[in-house]
Design a protein around this nucleic acid. Structure first.
Length: 494
DNA sequence: ACTCTAGACTCAGAAAGATAATA
DNA sequence: TTATTATCTTTCTGAGTCTAGAG
């Protein structure tokens, strides 16, 4: 079925007999009215008087208070998503084959409740029943339902601030730290395997090199036609790379160009070690562009091999490890103890950015980017003018002091000098701000900060350089990383 | 030993909402 | 001061990773 037919079918299924008589073709339908209806509704909500908005807020708070928490092991814990997802049109990311399908409303009859046998079992809404109530303490979810677009299960789970999630997070970083201890051995091993007689091993070793060096994701195989066409390391196809014996003065360059998770483009030109280059040539021999680059490899065999190298090691641990170690190294390289707090935070953001670039965390350029950049430039220009003026004034004051040789005119020179220095510093600050902004234009820092960087590195850095943790982590982040803030002293090393 | 699938969990950027800065 | 705008925070839910178990 074509995507369009699928959409139409999914909408047809919701239509009454009467509607089906009238509506035969979706492309003949005019949706401007319904679109206007929703736009208007949105505007109306925004234009609501203050006290009405206040009321809505209070109601939301009440819901949060009543449904937003659970008791786990005797502790009241915040729930991450305590509402089921509302019905609507499925969008998906990128060129998704199921775009436009109807996502159905979830009814109590769809919902499985998971709680303790001896707990107060939540009541379904009046006149309804739960699909099931179970008491499974081997999983962490509190409720679940099956979603109708991909037929996958959705869960109600705890907030990242919870003890359960925090401990899991800590564990994740501990595994990555263990990798630190054996990574040299593993690197030696895969270099050795580049020369293996077995094709499987060679492919595995080259893939692992990519995962390690470029922080690529594992790349599970996906069901065709069910999702957008994206790939990771193991699912790379011949068409996704180009080999250059020599490019821009560098040897053995691999040019990557593919869509990764969330249809984010990965584009990179990387010089690789010669055996890797030779192997890639070999892997690509007699293949079509659409063929798998690593035809003897999948994530399951790769992870099995990694498990043999270290307990708990999987492909994604390399991402965590390389992200965290990069942060630590960059912080060390970029921070000067004599810098002021603002400069230190700038260094932190630079280090964070290095990681985000490694992990290919991108964002759309903010809507107000150009404008705010212009504003900053205006400020810089104004500051430059002030600076020029101050320079002249200093010159005049110096001449004055030379002529008059009195105390007053001398102290005037000092004053002008101080002003000049102050203005110069302000200009510097503005300029670094501008560079920082420009470099950050399309880089998303949040994902790595929240998911890849061992928070203890940041906490230790804060303590070491006298930067308040609040400057690095906002309230939510401090709650999520409470375990690390508690645990790490300035001596912590990843 | 393998493939396939279901299940459970982490990780992902956009959009909405709240707050701070600025005119 | 207040209204507007820029920026930061929170919410949302889709898209991955990885494991276990059946055949």
């Amino acid at each position: 079925m074509s995507p369009f037919q699928m959409k139409f079918t999914s909408i047809m299924m919701e239509m009454t007999v009467e509607e089906k008589k009238i509506i035969k073709r979706l492309d003949k339908c005019d949706f401007t009215e319904i679109h206007k209806y929703f736009v208007d509704k949105n505007e109306a909500r925004k234009a609501l008087p203050k006290e009405e908005k206040q009321k809505l807020k209070e109601e939301a708070d009440r819901l949060q208070e009543e449904f937003g928490y659970c008791i786990l092991d005797g502790h009241r814990e915040k729930i991450g998503n305590f509402k089921t997802e509302p019905p609507g049109l499925f969008r998906g990311r990128g060129d998704h084959p199921k775009m436009g399908m109807l996502k159905k409303r979830i009814m109590p009859e769809d919902v499985i409740i998971n709680c303790s046998r001896d707990s107060k079992i939540p009541e379904p809404p009046p006149g309804h029943k739960w699909k099931e109530v179970r008491f499974d303490n081997t999983v962490t979810w509190l409720a679940s339902w099956t979603e109708n677009i991909q037929n996958s299960i959705k869960y109600i789970m705890l907030n990242p601030s919870s003890k359960l999630k925090g401990e899991k997070d800590w564990q994740k970083y501990e595994v990555a730290r263990r990798l630190k201890g054996v990574v040299d051995k593993i690197r030696f091993q895969y270099r050795f395997d580049w020369k293996s007689r077995e094709m499987r091993k060679r492919q595995r070793a080259v893939a692992l090199y990519f995962i390690d060096k470029l922080a690529l994701r594992a790349g599970n195989e996906k069901e065709e036609g069910e999702t957008a066409d994206t790939v990771g390391c193991c699912s790379l196809r011949v068409e996704h790379i180009q080999l250059h014996h020599e490019l821009d003065g560098q040897e053995h360059v691999v040019e990557f160009d593919f869509l990764g998770k969330d249809c984010i483009r990965y584009y990179n030109k990387v010089p690789v070690e010669k055996p890797v280059f030779k192997n890639l040539q070999l892997f690509m021999e007699n293949k079509d562009p659409g063929d798998d680059l690593f035809d003897r490899l999948n994530t399951s065999t790769l992870n099995k091999h990694l498990q043999d190298l270290m307990d708990g090691l999987t492909a994604k641990v390399f991402r965590t490890y390389n992200a965290s170690i990069t942060l630590q190294e960059q912080l060390k390289a970029l921070t000067s103890a004599e810098d002021n707090i603002a400069a230190k935070i700038l260094s932190y953001n630079r280090a964070n950015r290095a990681v985000a670039i490694l992990c290919n965390h991108q964002r759309a350029t903010p809507k107000t980017f150009e404008k705010s950049m212009q504003n900053l430039q205006t400020k810089i220009d104004a500051k430059k003018e002030q600076l020029a003026m101050a320079k002249q004034e200093l010159k005049r004051a110096k001449a004055d002091a030379k002529a008059r040789k009195d105390v007053k005119s001398k102290s005037n020179v000092d004053k002008k000098k101080k002003l000049l220095a102050k203005l110069e510093e302000q200009l510097m600050k503005l300029c670094t701000q501008a560079t920082d902004k420009e470099e950050n234009k399309q880089v998303a820092l949040g994902t790595s900060k929240l998911n890849y960087l061992d928070p203890r590195i940041s906490v230790a850095w804060c303590k070491k350089f006298g930067v308040p943790v609040e400057k690095i982590y906002n309230k939510t982040q401090r709650e999520k990383f409470a375990w690390a803030i508690d645990m790490a002293d300035e001596e912590f090393e990843f």
